[in-house]
Amino acid sequence: MLYLELLLQGIVQGSIYALIALGLTLVYGLLRILHVAHAALFTLGAYLGVIVTNATGSLVLATAVSMVVTGVVGMAVYKLAYEPLLGKPPFIALIASIAMFIASEEIFRIIFGPYGLSYTNPPLQGYYEIFGGFYLKYGEMLVIGLSIVMLSILGWLSGNTRLGVSWRATVTDPSMARAFGINIQNVRYLNFFIGSALAAAAGVLVALLNNLVEPTMGSVASYKALAIIVLGGLGSIRGTLVAAMAIGIIESFGTIYLGHILGRDALAFAFLILVLMVRPQGLLGAK
């Protein structure tokens, strides 16, 4: 029974990691930038979700608004911050991204206050009894369900539409894609829009599970998502999903059985380093 509960907790956490890390993978696949400030967009999404829900009372509307606005902000981040740095060594963009992330935490703190916000009427707080004495929160079911839906849509888009094909072409070979008449600029904008919108959705979900958004809620997401995309093999979407689930489940079991030796964050990184020593290219990365 405990095993099953831990496994489910791990899957819920893994789904959230997957939504966050996917945006990072998309950015990395296209631009080779470790986009730490992605976590700032996750926090922004969470704040927007709570504010709009409190103002209108509709979680669905809030999620939609949050995803669209955050997506547009993500496009602005690309245009203003990353585009001018594309030709520079990668660590320049990395430090710029870290600076943006630190600045964002401060901006959230200054605008919304240091103590965070909560839902006035927290939606979906009920429990559902799956079988004898085994409960799952509505919020947790939403996390798993929404992740599956969104990731399937994304998978379908990239496999079956012109848009998706041009995206994959740009990732594989930008100059060849340009020669075939694909507007690379648009692909990059789209990339940042989708990645940031997914992060916003993850933010809204985390806010729902904890019933709290704080300026610092992105800090865990910032580094753990990096660990996940590296574990998955940098730029591999399938690898990212596998790694997100693996980290979610390992953390959930590890905190119970190994918690006295290593904390939660350290566990994720211990696993990461172990895997990289055996497979330096990540779980599903190409050599």
Partner: peptide, 15 residues
């Protein structure tokens, strides 16, 4: 190497 190295060293500090 490169970005993998960056994240591995990041792991060291968390460990």
């Amino acid at each position: 190497r490169h970005d993998f190295l960056a994240i591995t060293t990041m792991g060291v500090v968390f460990l």
